[in-house]
């Protein structure tokens, strides 16, 4: 197929379906709490935790843990590297879908 980009050429950290959801949501909302992300993406805390750790390890995610009214609150947002990686991922994906590559 002409113009085909094998998925291996795409950033595999972001390409995974759940992580793509996390990155897309954070790109749109700026930052979200752990509970909000679970609710929005219909994920279990364990599932979100596993995938957010992969993104954090890649340097794409900033995880901030703090106490508000004596309750722990975890806030997630994309790092500059994560924003850039998502921008590049989107460019590559659009190139493929539009068949320009």
């Amino acid at each position: 197929m002409s113009g085909f980009i094998p998925p291996s050429e795409l950033d595999q950290v972001i390409h995974e379906r759940v992580r793509l959801g996390i990155v897309s949501a954070l790109a749109a909302a700026g930052e979200l709490t752990f509970v909000e992300l679970c609710d929005l993406l219909k994920l279990t805390p364990g599932n979100l935790s596993v995938h957010s750790r992969v993104l954090e390890k890649a340097g794409y995610l900033l995880i901030d843990k703090e106490f508000v009214d004596r309750k722990p609150r975890t806030t997630l947002k994309l790092s500059a590297k994560g924003k850039e990686a998502f921008r590049r991922y989107l460019e590559r994906l659009e190139e493929f879908v539009k068949g320009r590559k």
């Binding site: 749109a28 909302a29 994906l93």
Partner: peptide, 13 residues
């Protein structure tokens, strides 16, 4: 999925 989630995240906020 990206489009759908980005729109939903905006709505959510």
């Amino acid at each position: 999925r990206i489009k759908e989630i980005m729109e939903l995240a905006t709505e959510y906020k």
